[in-house]
Design a protein around this nucleic acid. Sequence first.
DNA 1: ATGTAC
Length: 395
Amino acid sequence: MSQHHSRRESLPPSTPATVTVFASPTSWIESNALAQCQQVAALDGMIHVAGMPDLHPGKGAPIGAAMASTVLYPFLVGSDIGCGIAVFPMKLKRAAPEKLAARFPDLDRPLDPERDADDPAWAVVEGDVPAGHVEGLGTVGRGNHFVELARIETVFEPGHASRLGLAAGDLVLIVHSGSRGLGERILRAHTEVHGAGGAPDAAAYLAMHDDAVRWGSLNRRLMAARVAHALGAEPTEPIVDQCHNLVEVRDGVYLHRKGAAPGDGRDVLIAGTRGTCSYLVAAHAGPDANHSVAHGAGRKMSRADALRRGRAKHTVEELRRTPVGSLVVCGDRQLLFEEAPTAYKRIEQVISDLVDHDLATPVATTVPLVTYKTPDIGSTSRPDRRNHRRKRGRP
DNA sequence: ATGTAC
């Protein structure tokens, strides 16, 4: 941290930062996550920390928080700069999960500008790829990232849904992914020199950050196009695309969001789990919430705990075929357990906490049909995936 | 979360 170079004397007299957590007393919030909020509140220049109902501990900083400060701290955004969730309308004649799951493209395999030059998904790229970073383009990544074909189930606000072109029964593709290696590279470059300290040249960081935000959004569109083509549908423009790891200049200060979506009059898809509904909400969060809402259900267990407890509690079969009848495409057994629905909080509680604090209004729920995480072992679409890098190189 | 870090 910056204990040797406090910039406080150059700043206006400051009062201690405030911390507000938007959750009900019965909602499960780990004490470690609350402690991380207090640690963030103690940083130089910090003004206000807003914890969302999906708050949980992260690496150094809490996840599910919006943090306003006069100093820009790259570690408060994290490495996956530009990560977000986009929703694309999908029109399919048939929606049998088994058949669709088998047709998903391999989203671990990047789109290569030369080898895949004729891939129709490239049509979504207008102009240059941000930062000229083509590595990993069109890939979903790991962790909590996913691409999900879902159906609009309950519509709470028919007028609002209709303005988005949605009605009950419609299909949508939900894409949760970020900037892959690009954001990681940007944070690492800062951390190698400044550690967890602030960015001395905020404009320079912001220029790279903005590239990563654009890259993440482009990547979500590319994946949606890849999937649409593979399933025989037309690619569409997203009706929702909100980034939940970013920093913006607002009211003259740096508003960092880490696992928190912009909530100032925007529509946001708040992700449930691989086996439960997600919620499309109209967000209307004010200054107390740092103009932000939750980004998902939020982890209830660490990945290590989820793996240990999940192995005793679940079979691979029940995680691949969920209680709502959806299929999870995930050839990585460890990831399947780490991402088990029981490792997450109940999305209904997160949503009701947002509603009770007047931060958001539910518009509709989506129920998953197929959630894609990573190719299945023995996937018919790409039986050679373990060797594809080598095999696809020069002969 | 990550073409990571032990």
